[in-house]
Amino acid sequence: MTHPYVVHFNPVAFHLGPVQVHWYGLMYLLGFLAAVVLGEYRRRQGRLPVSREALSDLFFYGMMGVIIGGRVWYMLFYYAGGLPWIWHDPLALFRVWDGGMSFHGGLLGVLVASLWWSRRYKLHFFDTVDFVAPLIPIGLGLGRIGNFINGELWGKPGTVPWAMIFPEAHGEDLQYVASHPSWAPLLQRYGGLPRNPSELYELTMEGIVMFVVLWLVSLKPRPRYLVSGLFSLMYGVFRFAVEFVRVPDPQLGYLFGTSWVTMGQMQSLPLIVVGVVLLWMSRRAPTLPLADVAAKA
């Protein structure tokens, strides 16, 4: 194979005086802004009978749900120190600069925020979720770009033509070669093992494919639960599949003594089940009519 591409970017996009602005943070910001713009566009089409101010509240609560839910879930299921942090180091929950966010927790946080908001504005919960679902994949895709720029969450070694070298994985490369000597020549030749760029796989599936499908499906009113079901099913399937070529979190490894079951897969299985159930429920569900938003603009 030709010399693989080496993933080596400066994670800092620019400086504002003494403050470093990281690409990963910018990706979160761009994802949120994209959701706001597209959400307002859909609102003006009459996809949700609320005012602009009410929709702004939804986005604010949703953003809080992503941050709080994502962090708490990570600390409960992924934190290297395990659950004793709750008693011995509770402030670890707030040290977000040390890293650690979970999509599944962020999704749960958004759902809780959407439930509270829906009750406040007297809307059906799943009408809100159906409205929000097509807006999420852009943020997912941009987040994976941030992971790629940071050179993190890399995939397993592979010889596909697009395999890449992640310098941050060098220690793991050495361990892999120790148990798989046949890979030693590649390590010596390139200074690192070519790996599957799993971040780009997830960008493609969770970001681009999911956005295109959900956006096209939701171009016209659909039965309640349909769009939410598609989101849940697609994300669950895509995340479950990509975990086969993504290195598991080092503090967890593989579960149940296997060589392939990961925490990401275990937490994606319920999404697959929920997606199937919602799609089945949509067969006999009503369709939310387009609202007259002229008075609510």
Rank of each mutant, 00 (worst) to 15 (best):
E40H: 14
R42F: 03
R43N: 03
R44Q: 15
R44W: 12
R44F: 09
R44C: 09
G46L: 04
G46Q: 02
R47V: 04
R47A: 07
L48S: 08
L48N: 03
L48A: 05
P49E: 08
P49K: 06
P49D: 11
V50A: 11
V50S: 06
S51H: 06
S51I: 03
E53T: 15
E53M: 14
A54Q: 15
L55F: 08
L55K: 02
S56A: 15
D57R: 04
D57W: 02
L58S: 12
F59D: 05
F59S: 10
F59L: 13
F60T: 11
Y61C: 07
Y61F: 10
Y61E: 11
M63S: 13
G65M: 02
V66W: 00
I67E: 01
I68T: 02
I68P: 02
G69H: 02
G69S: 08
G70K: 00
R71Y: 01
V72P: 00
V72W: 06
V72I: 15
W73Q: 06
W73K: 06
M75D: 01
L76A: 09
L76T: 05
Y79D: 02
Y79Q: 03
A80N: 13
A80I: 08
A80Q: 14
G81H: 05
G81L: 07
G81Q: 09
G82L: 14
G82N: 13
L83T: 10
W87T: 09
W87Y: 10
W87V: 03
W87P: 00
D89R: 12
D89L: 11
P90G: 08
P90A: 09
P90E: 05
P90L: 06
L91S: 13
A92H: 02
A92N: 05
F94A: 12
